[in-house]
């Protein structure tokens, strides 16, 4: 199932993110995925997220696919050169994985193997360009692929609240040119900024699925403001989290904030992408509170 089809059908696309385990026991991750699945159209599987080594995203995607859960295979350029990237993406096609999210990837120094060699043979744009080549039946070096070429729905990311925004838009355009068909965004907490962003990108005619990161605490909000690119949690939200310490412990305030944001942003875009960062069990409640349902089929 290609996302873009859903969007064409006028459906509001809902996705959530899942990180594979550090180890090969996938029961817990699978349980979380099964919990979330009834409420979403697809589940993104991250690729050594934050440069922390984990189980392969491709393997996790295959497991989900086997359980009839629709995966989005996230691919970064940090750990593989163009040979490995192409062969993994062809493998994804073999497993019937339809949706890809193509990213550059965090730098190795941010993760748990700081000494590792950062690859970055390609970047998000050239990666998309490479997939387009594969879809045209050629590899990046121009050699023909055997048989029918694969067909994917290719996504990428963008930071709507980044400052300055222009370099992001500039790259977004390049990504579209390289064949990107949808965008999932970095977490958004500022509706006004997002609105402005959507006005700017309307002309591109590509669906945008807004990113929501569930706030777990004041500390987390502050940390993101300080360290995470493209994210700014406004003061009023921080105040709200502060006031309700009791509830926040249970995650209630964060859930409410997320739901409210979704309601607010829904009219502006074509879908929502939840990043629960381990709080996968809260996803159903957030979606329920925000009043959106994943219309499938």
């Amino acid at each position: 199932m290609h996302f873009t089809e859903l969007t064409k059908m006028g459906k509001f696309v809902i996705t959530s993110e899942l990180g594979p385990p550090k180890g090969f026991h996938i029961e817990k991750a699978l349980h979380e995925a099964e919990l979330v699945w009834p409420h979403v159209h697809a589940i993104n599987v991250t690729d050594n997220q934050s440069s922390v080594m984990r189980l392969s995203g491709l393997a996790m995607c295959k497991v989900l696919k086997d359980k009839n859960i629709e995966p989005v295979f996230q691919v970064t350029c940090r750990d593989r050169n163009r040979l490995a990237l192409q062969s993994d993406i062809l493998s994804a096609a073999l497993f019937g994985i339809d949706n890809l999210l193509l990213l550059t990837g965090d730098h190795t120094t941010l993760g748990d193997h700081k000494d590792a060699k950062p690859v970055f043979d390609l970047d998000s744009v050239s990666l998309a360009y490479m997939v387009k080549h594969l879809e045209e039946g050629k590899d990046l070096a121009g050699n023909a692929l055997d048989g029918e070429p694969p067909k994917f729905c290719k996504g990428a990311v963008v930071s709507p609240c980044a400052e300055p925004l222009e370099p992001q838009l500039f790259k977004m355009e390049k990504k579209i040119k390289a064949g990107i068909q949808f965008f999932q965004t970095q977490a958004v907490y500022e509706a006004d900024k997002f609105e402005k962003f959507m006005k700017r990108v309307k002309e591109f005619g590509v669906p945008v699925y807004v990113g929501i990161v569930v706030l777990k605490s004041v500390g987390m909000a502050r940390f993101m403001n300080e360290n995470v690119a493209g994210i700014n949690v406004p003061d009023n939200i921080i105040e709200e989290l502060k006031k309700d310490k009791e509830k926040t412990k249970s995650g209630q305030t964060g859930i409410e904030i997320s739901a409210r944001l979704i309601k607010e942003l829904k009219p502006l875009c074509q879908g929502v992408h939840l990043m629960p960062l381990g709080w996968d069990d809260k996803v159903p409640e957030i979606l329920k509170l925000s009043g959106i349902i994943a219309e499938k089929g």
Partner: peptide, 9 residues
């Protein structure tokens, strides 16, 4: 031996 690519930060 393993190379450390993060020495020349």
């Amino acid at each position: 031996k393993l190379r450390n690519y993060n020495l020349n930060s």
